[in-house]
Nucleic acid binder design. Structure first.
Lengths: 341, 341
DNA sequence: TTGTACGCGTTATCAC
DNA sequence: GTGATAACGCGTACAA
């Protein structure tokens, strides 16, 4: 474990020049090196256990084979951190490294962090948001590739969950199970501010479209923008007190569904036989519940991996274009089986 | 936004040599530079918006001001990802960058990833584990600093949660509330394999010690190593069916406690009035419950930040030494108030 | 087909 | 006090 071998060492060992070594090891085809020389180089490299110094290479080429992943509160928030895993895996496959930074709720830190990443000469920047919304980012040098994962920002391409489809699919699943009287918990006018949410309006739109297509409206609704168990609990109690009857609850997200379960259980109602519950997100939580929750999964990991793929491959991404990633239906036990016909 | 300014540009702008520029900008005190020259340099640097190229600097110094954070499944598992945040924040404060990689359940990937980090010339390596256990790591070059966060490995220093203290504190909290007949869910002989858990034996030991110190034993126990809601649910039902009465449940972790809640609720028992519940971990889940769960927090974020501090500061860490990070008691509503006297 | 020599932007060693 | 200049390890134009 002495000093690491350098290209010059390999050249000496192989009895050739550094040029030859460099050419061979970088697989340059156009300049025809004799097969024999190439073999000698490879053997020597092997023997000396040579691996190129990325620092020196970067200095020379201007490329670092590294990407910045900058997030707001992804690591400390529930399951959104899977986005990181997706990015990490995709980067590793391509021989890239991810430099991570997280700024929390401090937009002023963002500028510093971006600068520091730029100083480190990253080849591209990913911005990952814990919840899909619009953000204002510091200006980036022209030609530096950047995009948002689970968010949008002026002038940058973005990757978002396909919420409109998911909204439709959720409602359709309920309809297929034969439900006609469905209650909805979690509608909120506030989400129409893009800085609060970039996607929830689509989720609503998909939901309403699917319902309308079946000639239906919600049997009842509870408003609320704090999508925590409390809303689900109180919302469900209110629903139960009201006159309108319903056979299924569509919850704005899993935590709301969680609260709904509590109220249903207290009320002596069984899921899914008395009331079916369908939801969005697919947190860990969804698997803890009895019966386990059927929900539309937010594809964090896929979005993260698509993020690095888009950054690294293919043509120049289109500014302001959004790429939608499907939200799969995760079938569990809180909605009865689809009915034939 | 043309090319970035270099040291030579600054030198030219200031009418001085690169040597002087380097000396001034690196704050070398010993070699006395005139105040005037220093000022000229600083102004010129400011004007050109100069910032040193870390690549070139690394090539020269052999240091990269970067740390590797390599984990198993931290990003995709519940709340352990807060460990990353802790590491990130501590690194940023010190001007270091974190290169992340995650290998999942594939030990064979570990070697490749470590190699790739070493090739990138990181100044130190952090290994972060989703759950505290012993792992076998590939050999590291002598002199390369490395340590484990939430785990142990032969020959390396490690950072672990102070489980013995936490076990004691949990029991004491219950005792203070006046409980004498306590049931425990989640004892398992399997955890004595260090490759499965490096810390749970201490948790047990602390628990048993505090109980013994009060001259008590558990009123009843349910074994189980799968610490999921199911265990808490079925365990609690079993406890309720048995003869032994109890006024409090100590659950192995929050998910088990969650299951216990469900069974208690079904049985018409109220938390904490009929049965108090105390637990370990402090997942998000703990705040969703009604009443919210009192639990001993696993200090992921603190462990992560301590990890980089130990790597970067202080003397050579002692191999095989474990540094224990306190697990705070998070007081919520599932245990009644402490009684006087 | 292969080798020499230069430059990438720093820091560090030595002169002046 | 300050300034040339030689590394650091690599890629490549140009020469041979």
């Amino acid at each position: 474990m002495n000093k690491r071998a350098t290209q010059a060492d390999v050249a000496r060992e192989a009895g050739l020049s550094v040029t030859t070594v460099s050419l061979v090891l970088n697989g340059r085809e156009n300049t025809r090196i004799s097969e024999e020389a190439a073999a000698r180089v490879r053997e020597a490299a092997e023997r000396l256990n040579y691996s190129p110094d990325p620092t020196a290479r970067s200095l020379r080429t201007g490329k670092t084979r590294s990407l910045a992943f900058i997030s707001d509160d992804v690591t400390v928030t529930r399951y959104a951190s899977a986005m990181i895993r997706g990015a990490l895996d995709a980067a590793e496959e391509r021989g890239y490294t991810i430099l991570m930074a997280e700024v929390g709720e401090h937009p002023e830190r963002l500028e510093k962090v971006v600068d520091s990443m730029l100083e480190r000469r990253v080849d591209g920047l990913l911005f990952g948001l814990m919840s899909a919304r619009r953000v204002d980012l510091p200006a980036l040098p022209r030609g530096k590739r950047a995009l948002l994962v689970n968010g949008t920002s002026a002038g940058l391409p973005s990757i978002l969950p396909a919420e409109h489809d998911a909204g439709q699919a959720a409602v359709r699943r309920l309809l297929e199970a034969g439900h006609r009287r469905i209650a909805f918990i979690g509608r909120s006018p506030r989400v129409y501010d893009p800085y609060l949410s970039a996607t929830i309006p689509q989720r609503y739109a998909g939901i309403d479209a699917a319902l309308a297509a079946a000639g239906l409206r919600f049997a009842d609704e509870v408003e609320g923008h704090e999508w925590e168990p409390e809303l689900g609990y109180r919302g469900t109690r209110r629903l139960l007190e009201r006159a309108a009857s319903f056979t299924a609850i569509l919850a704005a997200n899993d935590r709301v569904a969680f609260g709904a379960y509590q109220a249903l259980q207290e009320g002596g109602l069984r899921v899914p036989d008395d009331v079916a519950v369908m939801s969005f997100d697919d947190e860990q939580l969804a698997t803890y519940l009895h019966p386990a929750l059927t929900t539309m999964r937010l594809p964090y990991r896929e979005m993260g991996s698509l993020g690095v793929r888009m950054l690294l491959e293919g043509e120049e991404p289109v500014p302001d274009a959004a790429t939608l990633v499907p939200m799969p239906l995760v079938e569990r036990e809180s909605v009865g089986p689809p009915r034939e016909g």
